[in-house]
């Protein structure tokens, strides 16, 4: 565990989550994620295959960025508070990219008898391009 738990009662719309940086995404990381996730699509680990598909090189799994972004959220609030999490994959993450995760509170509301936050999240790569645009809904503890 790192840092101090945020004071969830004091949160306001616009408050930002601590950012998380991951990478560079090496071929080794892609191989680990291939095995760890069970997603064996060769486009993530086999550069010959990637080139045959018209790419310069292998690309990272979009779900790898989603997992790292999820880690940023659960480092901020325990996972059992998470009610929903969704991501749109906006751009390809090339091998060797560094992924930066960020997020902020976009809404505070009541739902199903709980006080909940909507989080607006994203991942970006080195050139600033957004690779994932995501949202999460969390219930306040």
């Amino acid at each position: 565990m790192s840092g101090q738990a945020p004071d969830f009662g004091q949160l306001q719309v616009g408050d930002e989550l601590p950012t998380l940086t991951f990478g560079p995404v090496t071929r080794h990381v892609l191989a680990l994620y291939c095995g760890g996730s069970g997603d064996h699509n060769p486009i993530h680990v086999d550069s010959d295959f990637a080139q045959q598909a018209g790419l310069d090189d292998v690309i990272a799994h979009g779900m790898l960025s989603m997992a790292v972004l999820g880690r940023m959220v659960t480092e901020w609030i325990p996972q059992q508070q998470l009610r929903a999490y969704s991501a749109r994959f906006m751009a390809i993450t090339p091998v060797h990219a560094t992924v930066t995760c960020s997020g902020r509170v976009s809404r505070i509301f009541e739902e199903d008898g709980e006080r909940r936050l909507r989080l607006k999240l994203r991942t970006r790569i080195d050139d600033g391009k957004t690779t994932l645009s995501a949202t999460a809904t969390v219930a306040l503890p």
């Binding site: 060769p42 486009i43 295959f49 598909a53 799994h61 929903a84 999490y85 969704s86 991501a87 994959f89």
Partner: peptide, 14 residues
């Protein structure tokens, strides 16, 4: 065809 497959969106409710 994995050469041309992309992941568009992934969404969970827990």
């Amino acid at each position: 065809d994995y050469r041309y497959l992309l992941h568009g969106e992934e969404s969970f409710s827990y």
